[in-house]
Design a protein around this nucleic acid. Sequence first.
DNA 1: CAGCGCAACTGGAATCATTCCAGTTTAAGG
DNA 2: CCTTAAACTGGAATGATTCCAGTTGCGCTG
Lengths: 143, 143
Amino acid sequence: MTPTAPAAVTPEDLLRGAGLRVTAPRVAALRAVGESQHATADDVLSSVRAELGTVSVQAVYDVLHALTDAALLRRIEPAGHPARYERRTGDNHHHIVCRSCGAIGDVDCSVGHAPCLTPSDDHGFVVETAEVTYWGLCPDCSA
Amino acid sequence: MTPTAPAAVTPEDLLRGAGLRVTAPRVAALRAVGESQHATADDVLSSVRAELGTVSVQAVYDVLHALTDAALLRRIEPAGHPARYERRTGDNHHHIVCRSCGAIGDVDCSVGHAPCLTPSDDHGFVVETAEVTYWGLCPDCSA
DNA sequence: CAGCGCAACTGGAATCATTCCAGTTTAAGG
DNA sequence: CCTTAAACTGGAATGATTCCAGTTGCGCTG
């Protein structure tokens, strides 16, 4: 069912649009990440296996890398936690991580637009991106 | 508050001031971190062993944790790199990391003071700290 | 200034996320 | 179809860090 409106972009379209082969593990992985916000590689593995049966650990890591390189996914790696993946890409948003349970929330940049992108002294580095991570306690853990 | 000019604060003073026992591995670890900016646990291990002879891996991790908890050290954990430790604590400065070689530089907050500390929407989280990491290429790697 | 208790340390094994490897399967272009 | 590079399998390896159980020693108390 592909209605006329381009509202529903299928995983298949996304993959083809990025010049990637359309395979069952990739489609399933894209769906899995879209459904559960900030899924870990292990979450994706479980999800994909539930849908397809046997899928190797390596396949999931390969897929996640390919999708991340193609900018269909964004990888976030909070210190002390396994990497997580999300579908929101290209909007330079940030994250808030619960120190207690590891829960993650999305946060738009607070001061309008990329204020943090310009370090006062860049030590001669060529700066490409600025990543902001807020640490605190989620509603459940602060109770 | 330190009464007179604390020109040379010894590692021993720092440890005692934090209510920690003064032991050879701790003193050596503090010195090691002070001498090499952004040292890894492994750097500290080598350095401490060079000075003291046999020191266990565990001792170094224990010491680094104790000193970090006591706020004598700050731990930074860039995604994909082993943790690093530094002596500059309490001033909420940030870091710039080379995507190629992992080199790290210190960066003071660009917009005066803690502008990034207030997320636009905190999702009910209690925010404690904001951590900014710049990613790019160091002078050597961008050449 | 001698004993004692708890924090610190030893060394070896275990953990966990992730990657490496070598061989097999499969999507998609000619 | 037929070919082939890309994708996938399964098992072993890696590297930073932690767990564990037993030993040592700093520094307080008597």
